[in-house]
Simulated assay, not measured.
Amino acid sequence: MRALNCRRVVVKIGTSSLIHSSGAINLRTIDRLAYALAALTNQGLAVVLVTSGAIGVGLDRLHLKARPESIASQQALAAIGQSELMRLYTQRFADYDAQAAQLLLTHDVFDFPVSRQHVLDTIDALLAVRAIPVINENDSVAVDELDHRTTFGDNDQLSALVATQIGADLLVVLSDIDGLYTADPRRDPEATLIARVPAVAPAQLAAAGGAGSRFGTGGMVTKLKAAQTMLAAGKQMVLCSGADPRVLLQVVAGEPIGTWFCAEG
């Protein structure tokens, strides 16, 4: 068992977990995620969700199979998809008597002390009334991620930034892979799961790369950078599969799920 000792948790879920490979919205995953977050809140934990998926949901709503190339078209998809994504979250959270609250952020919010403090105060106020902040990058305003120059990387690094800024003890990244392996398990049958990583090695960063799906912009390298951010702040991160978000209950309970990024001692 892992001694996580966490009271404040940030959960990040990626587009690949929220959208089927066919492009349809994965309603079961959203429902199970809402259940798990509500259960953790009922246990007395302060929980924040960082979600991707706005453009993926927008593609589904407009019955499009391919992501458009123009920035304006992607922003329009994000605007459509974000409202639908929040409708689904609000609906499913309400089924478990949990309150969702939306925050759309851009990178400059954290660059300026005044706006950063306002956001942190808002999150603290929401957590004080046991609401669950649902955070996404404001893709309809910020074009960096859409143009693939973002420092967030499909919200992996946004989640680490939020986690360190609000003093979270743990970041859980739900992904389309169940942890960090010695090699790509989709290509190397001898690849083995690494249970604990005390520090992210340069060789691991160099070996990582590529987006996980056609709907998202992240990949293993952005997850490792998120882990670096957490470790540098003296915090923990767990990378595990988002196929069934109810795994969050096991992770927070300290069960050895996925890869645990935690410094020795």
Rank of each mutant, 00 (worst) to 15 (best):
A168G: 03
Q157I: 11
D188C: 06
D154K: 11
L171Q: 06
L205N: 06
L170W: 03
A195F: 00
E190G: 11
K225Q: 15
S140H: 12
V221G: 01
I132P: 12
G210R: 07
L205R: 14
T164Q: 12
R214W: 00
G219R: 08
A211Q: 10
D139C: 15
A191K: 01
H148E: 15
I194D: 03
V143P: 08
G219C: 02
T192N: 05
L171E: 06
A207L: 11
G167H: 10
G209M: 09
A163P: 12
V173M: 10
A226T: 10
V221Q: 13
I177L: 09
D154G: 15
A211M: 03
G212I: 04
P185D: 01
T222V: 08
R187N: 05
A168S: 10
F215T: 01
S159V: 03
L224V: 09
R149I: 13
P185N: 01
D147T: 12
S213E: 04
D169Y: 05
I132E: 14
E137F: 15
A226G: 11
D156I: 03
G219A: 06
T182A: 01
L161S: 12
V162C: 13
T182F: 00
D156T: 05
L158E: 11
I177V: 15
V173D: 01
D156V: 06
G218A: 09
D147A: 15
V197H: 07
P133Y: 06
S213M: 02
F152R: 13
G219M: 10
V173P: 00
G209V: 02
A191E: 00
D139Y: 14
D184Q: 01
P185F: 02
R187H: 11
R196V: 07
A208Q: 03
D176K: 10
P189L: 06
I194S: 08
G212D: 13
I132S: 10
A203W: 04
T164H: 07
A142T: 03
E190I: 00
D178V: 00
D139R: 13
S159T: 03
V141A: 15
E190A: 15
T217S: 14
